[in-house]
Amino acid sequence: MSRGRALALMVMIASLITPLITPLPTHADPLPSGTGFLSEDLQARQADEAANPGMLWVDEGARLWQSPQGATGASCASCHGDATTSMRGIATRYPAVDATSGALLNLEDRINLCRTRHQKAEPYPYESDPLLGLTAYVARQSLGLPMDVETGGAAAPFYAAGEAFFHRRQGQLNLSCAQCHDDNAGRSLRGDTISHGLGNGYPAYRLEWQSLGSLQRRLRSCSFGVRAVQFDYGSPDYLALELYLAKRAQGVAIETPAIRR
């Protein structure tokens, strides 16, 4: 065998066995959804539309979608038509930067902006049933679709702020989000398991609340837990953090309305 043919053979053998011993570089696997930390019973309840209590809000959102609002008397459906097609995939891309104002908006903000800008209606307050309902209804149209937010371009400074927030210690207990949700995810905090801090199930029905609640409400609970300032609903700090969390959830399927403890 000539040296050339021997070399070619070696290259061929190497190319055959290399994939077996070193996996080709791929995108990192998505982080596990918090649903995996629920009991089997709760997972089953979440998956069953007739048993998931969050579906009450989704149903209310479906009703509001058709309901005339504000000075224009326009409903969401007047412009957007059938939500099951027009809203499919929308929630996977939020929070997102509004091209007109340059502001970072979560889904709640986008719905309220639609109300003030197009329907000439008052914005709904955070955590009100109508806002939770519409948000959950819109997010529900992306059920099973992977999160996929934009973090470059106009979103870049917001993403950087959210990342910094996630990693800085705060509160009297001097803890960062990362110390629990990166370093200790999956471990026990008394009877609870620390999640990876993904927002893919929100608005979610939390047993602790006995209600549906927004991701912002969940973030305020976390701040309370480390004895830190609870920022206002829709504050720039939490919005930026929401964007960072959404990027952490890249590729994770939307589960709204999820059940959480």
Binding site: R168, R169, Q170, G171, Q172, L175, S223, R227, A228, V229
Partner: peptide
């Protein structure tokens, strides 16, 4: 460390006013 400081008030950020 992840362990909170139980007897310290300096160098903490964004402490809830109730605990400041």
């Amino acid at each position: 460390t992840i362990m909170p400081p139980y007897y310290r008030i300096e160098g903490l950020r964004d402490v809830d006013p109730a605990y400041r």
